[in-house]
Design a protein around this nucleic acid. Structure first.
Length: 490
DNA sequence: TTGGGG
């Protein structure tokens, strides 16, 4: 609302009819001259150029979306930008070709301003701007009002025009009141909903490719919601996997992952994504029109046929928002804890004062062996069938739990010496089964006649862990976790 | 020559 009125103030009043007609006459004059082959030195609004496809025109516009530079099917590299101006807020795509990526427009940030000379509008089902290597030229300017007026990149043949500076100032003033892109399609990891399609602004931390199947490891500083599980599936309670992908990440890659916030895996089998292979290192991107689902209680991003990826700079508004939010979250002890957690009093830990660690913090810890206090859910247990749990009361067996927080999953063992303490000292068959159900979130049957519950929702519990290794020649590879100093309440 | 489609 405030935004709309601000825009109203900035926008020149359409005013009376004669003023409008005069402007149109001027535009048509220029268009006709351009059509007649006369060189054009004035910039036209995008909307006006659409009326004269095939004619060389000049544009002064804002870069709304930045594609990834890729090999074309020919011999060149290519990049596609979406550019917008006041006359055409939906924008138009502009494709560039060059022998080297360095010669392509390298836009630092969406919102930067581009000047295009002697480009042509083409219409193949949709309008687009065609940049011709032989006679077109471009210049890029920073979006910041305070920045200088000279371009930060120009193509070979670019010659500045008299009004560049004036237009640049105009564009820079127009920009802040016209957010680029459609924000209402954006979701954050914390607000994921199964089956919806949405845009995700995220940091791409790692990309893995195996025979045309791609996995993007992305992060936005928030936590995916805690999943509910099928209560009827014993198999799931035993077998729930630690990862969606087959093999765990190599340790050197794992150690680059943030310790707070979920790293979502986005899966794609589209070879189109080869494009992103060229993007080295870590970058921010907008994954457009993707969907998500849960598998074994783990959120999974899915790249659809209609999905696209747009690169974002660190200065992009959405990126700045995410980073600001993460910084304030990370600075606060409580906010570092899982966003969806309501710590229950299902379990007691002895080390009340010990510092809190996420599972990822522990997995990436520089020491193989260390202790930590976590806030986790028990998503699976082995054994978990009543007939097997019974054996625990003999104190000769251990139990393996699958722990989860928004950052990771890991197995943790309750060693046979700790089993008694863990179950609160009374190792009867009944106590063990009741407490395991409590941990796994299986609702108590209120009436024995009632049908079995369909879902279970494991509570968040505080839990002390200690890591150790089985093989001193492979300390990292043989690392295990043990639960200690933790008791499930009655 | 080559691209991408809101």
């Amino acid at each position: 609302m405030e935004e709309a009125s601000a825009r109203e103030r900035k926008r020149p009043r359409e005013g009376d009819a004669s003023e409008g007609n005069a402007r149109m006459r001027e535009v048509w004059k220029r268009l006709l001259e351009a059509a007649a082959g006369k060189p054009q030195y004035t910039y036209l609004p995008i909307a006006d150029t659409l009326k004269v496809p095939g004619v060389r025109v000049c544009l002064f516009a804002v870069v709304a979306e930045i594609g990834a530079a890729v090999h074309s099917r020919g011999t060149d590299f290519t990049v596609t930008l979406r550019i917008v101006d006041e006359s055409c807020k939906a924008g138009i795509s502009a494709t560039f070709f060059a022998e080297e990526t360095a010669l392509l427009p390298c836009v630092k940030s969406s919102g930067d301003v581009i000047s295009l000379h002697n480009v042509e509008i083409q219409h193949h089902g949709e309008f687009c701007v065609t940049f011709n290597k032989k006679f077109s030229s471009f210049a890029l300017f920073e979006r910041k009002v305070s920045a200088e007026c000279s371009p930060y990149q120009t193509s070979m043949k670019y010659h500045g025009r008299k009004h560049d500076k004036e237009l640049l100032t105009q564009m820079r003033t127009w920009l802040p009141n016209n957010p680029l892109g459609l924000k209402d399609l954006e979701l954050q990891l914390r607000s994921l909903k199964s089956g919806s399609t949405f845009d995700l602004v995220c940091k791409v931390l790692h990309v893995h490719e195996n025979s045309g199947k791609w996995i993007f490891y992305v992060w936005d500083g928030t936590d995916t919601p805690a999943a509910e599980f099928q209560a009827i599936s014993d198999a799931e309670a035993v077998e729930s996997p630690l990862l969606l992908e087959g093999l765990p990440l190599p340790r050197e890659v794992l150690c680059t992952m943030p310790c707070v916030g979920t790293v979502l895996r986005i899966f794609s089998d589209r070879s189109v994504n080869k494009v992103l292979h060229m993007q080295k290192g870590i970058y921010w991107a907008r994954f457009c029109n993707i969907t998500c689902e849960q598998e074994f209680g783990i959120w999974k991003g899915v790249f659809l046929y209609s999905s696209r990826v747009r690169l974002l700079s660190h200065e992009d508004g959405s990126v700045v928002d995410r980073l600001k939010m993460y910084d304030s979250r990370n600075a606060n002890k409580v906010h570092r804890q899982p966003m969806a957690s309501f710590p229950s009093n299902v379990a007691d830990v002895e080390y009340e004062k010990a510092g809190y660690s996420t599972l990822m913090e522990s997995l990436t810890h520089h020491e193989v062996t260390h202790k930590l206090k976590t806030l986790v859910r028990v998503v699976a247990a082995y054994p978990c069938r009543a007939s097997e749990l019974r054996l625990l009361s003999t104190r000769k067996y251990c139990i393996r739990l699958t722990l989860e927080d928004p950052t990771a999953r890991t197995h943790a063992y309750v060693h046979k010496d700790n089993v008694v303490k863990f179950f609160g000292g009374f190792l009867t068959e009944e106590v063990v089964i009741k407490k395991m159900n409590k941990l796994l979130g299986v609702p108590e049957p209120e009436d024995s006649e009632e049908v079995a519950p369909l879902t279970r929702n494991p509570p968040w519990i505080w839990c002390c862990l200690i890591s150790y290794y089985l093989d001193k020649n492979d300390r990292w590879g043989s690392r295990r976790y043990q639960i200690y100093a933790t008791t499930i309440r009655d």
